[in-house]
Design a protein around this nucleic acid. Structure first.
Lengths: 336, 336
DNA sequence: CTGTTAGCGCTTTCAC
DNA sequence: GTGAAAGCGCTAACAG
C-alpha cells in the first residue's frame, strides 16, 4: 500500500487503536509507558508524520506563526525577523512572513489575511491605527515590536534612555544648539523619539532646533541636508542610522565634512553604522533579541492556560560612541 | 449557531447543495451562471471563507510556498525575498520563510521540514550538495536562485557578462595586474565567479593575482586587506560588495586610500554600494526581479498540467561605474 | 489505560 | 447542472 503512512498504519503495526497512537503524540502521559514505546517505535519504523491538515481541521490550529514587517529592505528588520525566526524554529513553529511595503493602508488587510493562516502574530513597527490593532488582537494572540498600544502585548526598547545618553554625550562634547531630524510623523516610534528628544534636551538645558520630518530612508536623510545647514547648529541628532548616513553623504556634496564641520549621531546601530567612514556614533537597539523575546512571549500567550504571562521588560539600549561626533569648538566650515 | 461560516451555511442560504457551493469556487464553469451568482452572493453576504485545513486534507495541497535563504542579514537576500513575496502575494500564496544561518548541513533538513508545509519552494543560493538538491526536487516543485544543478529549474544571473564588463572596465582604465578576492570556495556562485574572472582576465591578456578566499562578509573583506597590499596590484576585484566595503575600510586603516592608491570593484550593487563614500564601482544584479521571476516560474511549475514550462532566461547584469575605480598611473602610495 | 464512535469542513465520484 | 454520499487523517468524547 503506497501513499503516506497514516495513523492507522501505525496503529496496526503497534497493534493498538488509532486513538492510542494519537494520544501517544498529543498526551503521552495518558498512555502506558510500554504501549507508548511500542507505538513510538512503530511510528519511527514506518517514518510516520502526522498530517498537519487533518490536525488543523480538528483543532482549529495551524501550528504556524506570522511576522509582519513594513520593509524588509530596511536593515532594521531582517535582524528582527532573524530573531523571531530562530526562536520560532526552536519552538517548532514554521513562520509566515509578509512585507507590507510601508503601506499602512494595506497593512491591516494583510494582517487579516495572514491571521487566518497562523495561530499567532508578531507585528514589527505596525503602521496601522490603534483601533485596527485592537481589533486584530481580538482575533488571535499578537505581540507588537517597537509599538505600544494600551492593552496590546509588546516588546519595546528603552528609547528614552538611548536618547538621554545621546543628549548627555552631546552636552559633554560641548554642544549647545542641537538639531533634530525627525522621521515621518505617521510613525509611532518617530513620535516617541521626537518626544524624548525634546524632553531630554530641555532637561539638559540645551537648545533644540527642529529640522523637520523626512522619510526614514537614505534619501530622506539626504533631503534633510539643506535644512540642517541652515539650522546653525553644531550637532544634529537623526531619527535613525539610515537617514544619518544619507545626511552625511549629502553634506559631503556641500563640502561639509562630518565630524569636523558638524557632529551627527544616528539611532539603531544597523550593521553599516560601524562600516561607514567615519563610523557612526549611535544607539544600539537589540533587534535580534527583541525578535526572539517577542516570539517567546507570543508562545507564552498561545500556550497560556491560566493567567496571562508577564510581559517582558523594555529592552535596554546602548550608546555607541564612534567617529561622527566630536568636541566643540569646531574647526571647520561651520565654526564661528 | 455561531462559529465560522461553513460551506453548508452558504448552501442553505443559496438553497443549493454543499457540492454546488464547492463547485462554484473550484470549477465555476461546471455551475449554471444563475446558480453561481446566487451562491456567490450568498457567500459574500455571509462572508464565507473556505477552511484551508479542510481543503488541504482533501487535496493534499497547502496553498503555501516556501523560501529558503542562507542569511537574511546579508543585504543581498532581503531584496530577493521581497521580489518573491510580492509576486507570491499577487498569485495568492502565503510565504513561509526560513533562514538557515549559512549552515549548509542544516539546510537540507530545514528544507525537508519546510517542504511538508508548502506546495513549492524557492531556494536562494542553496549551499547543499547537488544530490540533496536533486532529491528534494523529487518531493515537490522547486526553483533555485543563483545556483545551477543540471535538471533543476533555476533563475540565474549572467555573471560571466558582469565579470566581463568589469574586466573591460579595468583594462580601459589601464590596469594590468589585477587581484581577485574570492568568496568561500564552498559557495557555488563563488566558484562560478572565480572561473569567470580567470577566463576573462586571460582573454583580455591581463594578469590575475589570486588574493585568496574569504568569508562573504564585511569582516571577511577586512581580513583580505593585508594580502591585497602584498599582491602588488593596481586594482582588485572582490567577490561581492559587502566584502569590497570591508576591504576598503581596512585599507583605510593602513593609510591606503581608495581609489587614489588602489582601484576596487565589487559585485551585486547592494543598497550601500551607492551610499558608501566613495561610492562603489560594481555590477548590479537584479535581485528583486530574480525573486519575482523565480516565483512566477514556480507557479508555472506548480500549475502546469501539460509539458514543463520554459525556464526563464538568465538575468542580465549591469556594470555600474562609480567612485572606487580610476585610471592608472596611480598617484598614491602604491604607485611605482 | 485503551478502543469505539463521531465527526472537523471540504471535495469528489456517482447517480439522477 | 445538481444532489447524495463517502470519506481525506486525525482528535475527542465516551464507554469499558
Amino acid at each position: 500500500m503506497s501513499g503516506p503512512v497514516t495513523i492507522r498504519d501505525v496503529a496496526r503495526a503497534a497493534d493498538v487503536s488509532p486513538a492510542t497512537v494519537s494520544r501517544t503524540f498529543v498526551r503521552p502521559e495518558k498512555v502506558d509507558a510500554v504501549t507508548r514505546e511500542r507505538v513510538l517505535s512503530a511510528a519511527a519504523r514506518l517514518d510516520y508524520r502526522p498530517n498537519r491538515a487533518a490536525q488543523s481541521l480538528i483543532t482549529g490550529l495551524t501550528g504556524n506563526i506570522g511576522i509582519v514587517v513594513p520593509d524588509l529592505t530596511n536593515p532594521f528588520f531582517p535582524s528582527v525577523v532573524r530573531g523571531i525566526q530562530s526562536r520560532a524554529e526552536e519552538l517548532g513553529y514554521p513562520v509566515l512572513l509578509v512585507d507590507t511595503g510601508e503601506d499602512a493602508a494595506r497593512e491591516s488587510e494583510l494582517v487579516t489575511r495572514l491571521g487566518r493562516q497562523v495561530d499567532g502574530l508578531v507585528l514589527c513597527a505596525a503602521r496601522m491605527s490603534d483601533e485596527d490593532l485592537l481589533s486584530h488582537r481580538q482575533q488571535r494572540p499578537l505581540v507588537l515590536i517597537n509599538r505600544e498600544v494600551p492593552g496590546v502585548p509588546a516588546v519595546t526598547f528603552d528609547n528614552a534612555a538611548g536618547i538621554a545618553q545621546e543628549v548627555m554625550h552631546l552636552k559633554a562634547l560641548g554642544h549647545v544648539r542641537i538639531g533634530y531630524v525627525a522621521g515621518p510623523g505617521t510613525s509611532y516610534s518617530s513620535r516617541v523619539r521626537q518626544g524624548a528628544v525634546t524632553t531630554h534636551l530641555a532637561a539638559a538645558a540645551l537648545t533644540e532646533v527642529a529640522v523637520g520630518s523626512f522619510a526614514p530612508s537614505f534619501d530622506g536623510g539626504r533631503s534633510a541636508a539643506e535644512k540642517v545647514l541652515l539650522a546653525n547648529v553644531t550637532a544634529v541628532m537623526v531619527y535613525n542610522d539610515v537617514m544619518a548616513l544619507g545626511l552625511i553623504n549629502q553634506l559631503a556634496q556641500y563640502g561639509v565634512s562630518v565630524p569636523n564641520d558638524l557632529t551627527v549621531v544616528g539611532y539603531d546601530d544597523i550593521e553599516f553604522a560601524a562600516m561607514a567612514n567615519p563610523a557612526l556614533t549611535t544607539v544600539r537597539v537589540p533587534r535580534e533579541e527583541a525578535g526572539a523575546l517577542a516570539m517567546s512571549y507570543l508562545n507564552a500567550l498561545m500556550t497560556a492556560t491560566g493567567p496571562a504571562p508577564e510581559p517582558p521588560a523594555q529592552l535596554k539600549t546602548e550608546f555607541i560612541f564612534r567617529g561622527t561626533s566630536v568636541r566643540v569648538p569646531l574647526t571647520g566650515a561651520l565654526a564661528e
